[in-house]
Amino acid sequence: MNINATILGQVISFAIFVWFCMKFVWPALIGAMEERKKTIADGLEAADRAVRDLELAQNKAVDQLKEAKQEAAVIIDDAKKRASTIIDESKDKAREEGDRLIVSAQAEIEQESNKAREVLRTQVAALAIAGAEKILERSISEADNRDIVDGLAAQL
């Protein structure tokens, strides 16, 4: 166990190795590791943010869905109301039209009956005159009896 120049050799090689390590090994490795650490941290943060964003989006979607449902319900209500009013309106219109038709039909009937009565009256008058003419022959003038005949016809 002798102390000899090996100790100097070891000191020198140690110095060289430390210098080499300091210059070419350590900075590159630590730099890469720090960078990766940062990348991973960024990635994790991004993932967290994405989760939060997703939650927000889901909440928003739920809200929107609720809103849409409400809107749809309102629209359906409106449509139902509208339909019932349309139905009511058309019922009223139909009833009015029916009434109008009935009135006009009645008026027509009356007109027809009046017309028929008129015709009948004139014919009866003529018939009565003819009958009276036949009964009285020439003794009674048509002009003298016209008022009587007309009065008879009016009573019809």
């Binding site: 002798n2 102390i3 000899n4 120049a5 090996t6 050799g9 070891q10 090689s13 190795f17 080499f20 390590c21 070419f24 090994v25 490795l29």
Partner: peptide, 26 residues
């Protein structure tokens, strides 16, 4: 041999190991 002698074996192995270490890490 006194102080000015070199332990070729231990120093050589130590140097070789150091060089392997530096080579691999570099």
């Amino acid at each position: 041999m006194g102080f000015w002698a070199l332990n070729v074996d231990t120093f050589g192995v130590s140097l070789a190991l150091g060089m392997i270490f530096m080579f691999v890490f570099h």
